[in-house]
Amino acid sequence: MGPFHDWVYMVAAIGGLTAVTVLTRASFFLLPAGVELPERVERALRYAPACALAAIIAPGVLTRQGEVAIGWGNHQMWALLAAALVFARTRSMLAMMTVGMGLFTVLRLTVG
């Protein structure tokens, strides 16, 4: 019975997340016309999402149980690097998923 089975926790989480979606996407549709985004804030806002996503992905792929796990044996890491390169080149979601998951599966089945 993990947190996912705690109904109160999950419904509260999802309610708040829905509010976050509406508040961010509709933000400037709801603010009075005079309110502008200061240039400095906009610059910071532009970098924050990429940093947040990187800070989610990196510990998930580069650590195991709180220990740094960067090395040849980290199949996820190599698969992700290959997939990122493919996506940077092709901008194709399908191609990146195929390469990433394909390489991971090949490594998992051959190297072990």
């Binding site: 979606t21 996407r25 532009r46």
Partner: peptide, 9 residues
């Protein structure tokens, strides 16, 4: 989601 704030603006 902060990128959406820029989109909205």
């Amino acid at each position: 989601n902060l990128r959406f704030v820029i989109f909205a603006a």
